[in-house]
């Protein structure tokens, strides 16, 4: 790979209700396999993707949440969660599956501006 680009995945949807969260995760894993600089942003309902304790047997759907814990193996270590999105949903960092960096809306916006590629989910 000649040039490393900064890829940001913006995740704004809850898991299971729509296919966005799973699609995003799959593209993240593919992108990471090509040694790019990948960061993931979780805001609005996207923060629900990282909620611990997901049990999907009852809805007969694959529980893909354990894969977020494998992102470290893929060298995807930049996970950002928006503070107010988390608070509005009654969640704290302890509710999340992985360790993340908590940022404000303004900081998220600034981070978005630094990217070469922004993928929206």
């Amino acid at each position: 790979m000649s040039e490393v680009k900064k890829f940001m995945f913006v995740n704004r949807k809850a898991p299971y209700g729509t296919i966005y969260a799973l699609e995003s995760l799959e593209v993240v894993l593919i992108t990471a396999a090509f040694d790019q600089d990948v960061s993931l942003m979780f805001l609005d309902d996207g923060v629900y993707q990282l909620k611990k304790g997901q049990q999907t047997k009852g809805i007969e759907t694959k529980n893909f949440s354990p894969a977020y814990r494998a992102l470290e193996d893929y060298d995807v270590e930049k996970l950002y969660v928006e503070k107010e999105s988390m608070q509005a949903r009654g969640l704290t960092e302890e509710d999340l599956l992985v360790s993340v960096t908590v940022l404000s809306r303004a900081e998220m916006g600034a981070l978005m501006d630094e990217q070469d590629v922004v993928l929206s989910y």
């Binding site: 898991p15 299971y16 909620k51 049990q55 009852g58 809805i59």
Partner: peptide, 8 residues
Amino acid sequence: PDLEARGL
């Protein structure tokens, strides 16, 4: 089942 799937 929908609430449990979402870990809540």
